[in-house]
Design a protein around this nucleic acid. Structure first.
Lengths: 342, 342
DNA sequence: CGTTAGCACTCGGCCATATCGAGTGCTAAG
DNA sequence: CTTAGCACTCGATATGGCCGAGTGCTAACG
């Protein structure tokens, strides 16, 4: 597959970079200048013809220049993999744009915003919500005689709550014992381990009578597996419209619609799991609406565990080098910023 | 201002409805047909000329039909105010599209989605977060020796939490006393009443030494006023691109960008406060980017208090009648669904 | 034999021109 | 006051010609 001699590769790279830069099919003449005339336009033409035959380039029409295919981009991106560092300039922009704020929960949003601002593409960042979180406490807090607030806390400090209300009055003592019991029994289980069965069994053992117990159990059953769900923030989707290839709203709408669907975002980011950085180009996407786009994504870690992911959505004609460096950089940064609970 | 005789009004309404329907300037001939030939095209032309002079219509160019101005729409909308009920068809669609889900927190999102699906415009819904919430409890939950989770609870069950960590070990007893103290002192205050001063004064009185107290105070100071903040969900922004007037991405981008800014959404919805339903048309918007759009918004209530708001963003050429009925209907519905804590 | 100059050819983009027709405003008659 | 008639306007659409960037091929060159 990588059977491109050095010259072909150089030409391919140059074409891609030129095309990324000004979004117009590049011809042999202009390319020759860009390459500093080390070959004649004619030679370049010959090479371009073979590159086209090999599927790396295509031809909008006879008398137009060449445009990279998805395969061309793929080759380009793969040959880029060696970790280029982020340019000092971009690093400064990150520092300027990213205000880590006081609140940790806000950080992912901040990062998403920073990514979108700097790249001028759309960006996504998941809030952390590691799958291997461990149950720690259940707190039942009486609000009134008939209302109680239940709060689950996990080892990494993620929590979730819900208010319950019942007919029968609730005694603080009973609530206390109940939370003790639940906390005790579930303590140390990974969220994913806590099955409905486990729950009902021991609540049954405890032979609790109050109706709230059932409701509570139902809620836990339903909520615990999802507590690990990552919320996905997306920013800068309007940037898509800046791209000349999406100047026409009809071509942009399917993309924006797709990016409004949470399962799509989650799929896009999930692809990066276990990999350092992951790029999906054009028709490699399983969603047809995204065939005109490229996604660069990276995972971040949280206290030694997978924490979440972040990514960029832009046209296939994306500034891969810059974006990949940036995404990689922010993934590391996020790991650090989130790693130490402030 | 409302000095339009019945005929002028009829013509204006007809023009607006025709234009809303097919997004093309309407001429006298076509209009005469629509109005069932009760007047001749010539008469209509005369009236149109005066309506234009009065500022209700405009003329893209000499040989084109008429298009309503913002003022025209405003007149139309104001004359619509008598509560038209939602069509049975739309009511069914609501029922089909809206799955109130099990979770109350999700409801606003569901409603936003339903609104966007049905109207094919963009929709916004705030999560409830009444301004007149009353502080109820502070709970400090030890996580480890060095970490503690603080949770604020208000009278209507809204809560918020944050984890703190310190060098000095934390004793559960001390934490308990601290939360007791804070809860006791702040209990019953409206969130907005709790000033930084009040906080520092009594924390000072209590002469607490632990460093966590300062952090906690800082957090409360900063967080309490914002606890009433409403989260705003927006859905269906891509629908904007369906509108022929925004076929060109360059005209749509400023709008989509504006709708990505939370303060813009919040402003749009805030306008509805105290009113049954509120419509903002074109240049009435304070944000220039939205001059081509119209917003229909309504507030919903929550347990007798203002709860939040919901709204629709579309082109000024919006299906006002339908949208207003729908928004009003869902505002009432939301009040009910949220009203009774499940 | 790979490279390059030369050249005929292609074809989209652009501009100028012509045509069409929906729609107007005015005038005059009903 | 309403309406028929009519000249006029002007954007939208279609047509044709031209331009030039870019190609592929051929033949000469090192």
């Amino acid at each position: 597959m990588l059977d491109l001699d050095a010259r072909k590769q150089e030409i391919l790279d140059a074409i891609i970079e030129a095309y990324i830069h000004d979004a117009e099919p590049v011809g042999s003449e202009r390319l020759a200048q860009r390459i500093h005339l080390r070959m004649s336009p004619a030679t370049i033409r010959n090479e371009m013809a073979t590159l086209e035959e090999m599927g790396y380039l295509s031809h909008p029409h006879t008398s137009a220049g060449r445009v990279p295919t998805d395969r061309g981009y793929r080759f380009y991106v793969d040959s880029l993999q060696q970790n280029e560092p982020l340019s000092a300039q971009d690093r400064n922009r990150v520092r300027r744009v990213l205000h880590p704020g006081e609140q940790r929960e806000r950080l992912p949003e901040e990062v998403a915003r920073a990514l979108a601002t700097i790249t001028e593409y759309a960006s996504m960042v998941t809030s952390p919500g590691a799958e291997d979180q461990v149950f720690k406490h259940l707190h039942l807090i009486p609000l009134t005689e008939h209302e109680v607030l239940a709060i689950i806390v996990t080892d990494i400090g993620v929590f979730h709550g819900k208010t319950f209300s019942t007919q029968d009055p609730l005694e603080p003592d009973a609530l206390d014992r109940l939370s003790q019991l639940v906390s005790h029994r579930l303590h140390g289980y990974a969220l994913t381990e806590i099955s409905g069965e486990l729950l009902s069994r021991f609540l049954h053992e405890a032979a609790w009578q109050h109706r709230i117990v059932e409701e509570l159990a139902a809620w836990l059953r339903q909520r615990l597996p999802r507590l690990a769900d990552r919320r996905i923030h997306i920013e800068g989707t309007a940037n898509i419209l800046k791209q000349p290839e999406f100047r026409d709203a009809r071509s942009a709408r399917p993309i924006l619609s797709a990016l409004e669907r949470e399962e799509v975002l989650s799929d896009l980011l999930r692809a990066t799991e276990g990999r350092d950085i992951w790029v999906t180009i054009g028709r490699e996407h399983r969603y047809e609406e995204l065939h005109g786009t490229a996604v660069v994504a990276a995972a971040y870690r949280l206290g030694g565990h997978p924490g979440g992911a972040l990514g960029i959505v832009g046209p296939t004609r994306m500034k891969y080098a810059k974006v990949m460096a940036l995404v990689r950089y922010l993934a590391v940064n996020l790991t650090e910023l989130l790693g130490e609970p402030s």
